[in-house]
Design a protein around this nucleic acid. Sequence first.
DNA 1: CTGAATCCCATATGATACTG
DNA 2: CAGTATCATATGGGATTCAG
Lengths: 143, 143
Amino acid sequence: MVTNNLNVTNGRTAMSTQKIYAPPPGTNWSVLSSTCPSRTSLARIANKWTAMVITVLEDGPLRFGDLRTALEGISGKVLTDTLRDLERDGMITRQSYAEIPPRVEYELTPLGRTLHGPLSVLCRWAEEHIPEVLAARDAYDER
Amino acid sequence: MVTNNLNVTNGRTAMSTQKIYAPPPGTNWSVLSSTCPSRTSLARIANKWTAMVITVLEDGPLRFGDLRTALEGISGKVLTDTLRDLERDGMITRQSYAEIPPRVEYELTPLGRTLHGPLSVLCRWAEEHIPEVLAARDAYDER
DNA sequence: CTGAATCCCATATGATACTG
DNA sequence: CAGTATCATATGGGATTCAG
């Protein structure tokens, strides 16, 4: 199941969006506030699989199996859950074709595309700084 | 306990770092590869609490209690675990003062500081796009 | 055969009580 | 104050089974 692990009362319609999410007077209304809905959003995007999915989808739509191959090692369930969460949050679209064998394609939405830059930066950071991180781990564990 | 949830054989010393993490010939050696150590790194940084901790620490060292206050809603245990993981990976330093009452300060390392930009971008993205995300959720759930 | 739901376990996270 | 210990629960994730 796709659960919403967040301690926030959902807003209602898209129309009233701006009003609902305005900070109460005198409140620091940021991702740091436990009552701010943006935390739900941060939890979704600051996530290992999300980062990889968005990064991989940049080059165009991919079907389920291709994503699974690209994201070496992800299980079917986790990929399904991740994709559904991303679809729900408006980051990707899901296009199912009535064919045999079945074909389902996932594609970045404009919103999702705005996330690609930031997330790919993160992926690159991870790749570029492994040596330093692993060295730090070695040093730390040696004590 | 602080666990390492990763499927990677640790490298050995900092000296041999460059050799060990060179990709086997013909391999796409990226964060997408399940055998690439950078995944361990990505898992740590692409994380809700990590993003918030690094973001908050940018303005200078903070002590445990201040961090806990700033990161509204985090439990002591989780904050401890998160900080220890970040320290192990060389992102922050921990300075303990022999005073009563005790004082412990956490500070970004140069390595950690290189992460601040990318992660704060993510936090800001979350803050700026909540309306769109919540609207998308509304639309999705309405079906 | 592809995509995804189900079952089940490991881990992550959180609340609470306790200590130097 | 800054943790640790313990316990309870939520979530992540893999193996398997199911559906079209």
